[in-house]
């Protein structure tokens, strides 16, 4: 009990200090705040619209100006998923004296009728919203990571509300490993294609030569969308892979 009170006091004091620190923040949208007054930020704020035709500066910075950084963030997520699969995944888990339960694949085991019907109603809407978040990332907050998390959550929702077996029937292990690799490959493929045309890695402007009816500026905008789709594929697949491995202790059978 004493430790709990001590912990509460520590958390409270930290929270109070942080709240006190909020008073020193610059004002909302202040152009002279340290984050906005630097040389780089000024360049982004003034030139993003002319360079890329993307109204959302954050997306332009994330996927274009700092595309190299984002590519390796995607790779970090990919490696995390691969590491979890390498640690947890077990192939033969049948203890001696046991046999696997043969479930009839035509039947499904309902967790709860009310919840599975609700899930069936809501999952398509969630997936549509995830695609909207990805595709609308040029104009509103959103992008590959957020859309991928929402899309992965929809598959996890299927696994929670019915069971892991029916979720794996829709998004099998072979498929999610393939999609995770494909997402990382799409991102780096954009970079390699620009290398082939003799420009810097991930300098998208040159892709107007192979895209129909685009100038350099619009080619950068379109390439950002392609890169975001690659990020979305990796994040979706890795989210679901982590859930499936953790919930079934790496066996990918039975499970929740």
């Amino acid at each position: 009990m004493g430790m709990r009170i001590l912990g509460f006091i520590a958390v409270f004091v930290t929270g109070a200090l942080l709240t006190y620190g909020v008073a020193d923040f610059p004002k909302w949208g202040d152009p002279h705040s340290p984050a906005n007054a630097g040389e780089v930020s000024t360049y982004f704020i003034q030139n993003t619209k002319a360079d890329t035709h993307v109204p959302n500066i954050v997306t332009a910075v994330l996927a274009d100006y700092r595309g190299y950084d984002t590519m390796f963030e995607t790779v970090v997520i990919f490696i995390a998923g691969v590491a979890i699969m390498a640690i947890l995944r077990v192939l033969a888990t049948i203890p001696p004296g046991h046999q696997p339960v043969q479930y009839d694949p035509r039947k499904k085991i309902a967790y709860d009728p009310i919840i599975s019907v609700t899930c069936r109603l809501i999952v398509p809407v969630i997936q549509l919203f995830a695609l909207y978040v990805v595709a609308h990332g040029h104009h509103s907050p959103g992008g590959g990571f957020q859309g991928g998390v929402i899309l992965g959550a929809s598959f996890i929702l299927i696994a929670i509300t019915s069971n892991l077996r029916s979720a794996l029937r829709r998004f099998s292990e072979k498929r999610f490993i393939f999609i995770a690799c494909a997402g990382a490959l799409i991102y780096s493929g954009f970079g390699l294609t620009t290398l082939l045309f003799g420009r810097n890695f991930l300098d998208y402007g040159v892709l107007s030569k192979i895209m129909f009816d685009t100038d350099e500026v619009m080619a950068r905008s379109h390439s950002m969308l392609g890169v975001e789709i690659g990020v979305m594929l990796t994040v979706t697949a890795i989210m679901f892979a982590i859930y499936a491995n953790l919930s079934s202790r790496g066996a990918l059978r039975g499970g929740l």
């Binding site: 709860d112 009310i114 919840i115 609700t118 109603l121 809501i122």
Partner: peptide, 8 residues
Amino acid sequence: VTSPASTH
């Protein structure tokens, strides 16, 4: 739709 379902 979702709040009654999660309550349930």
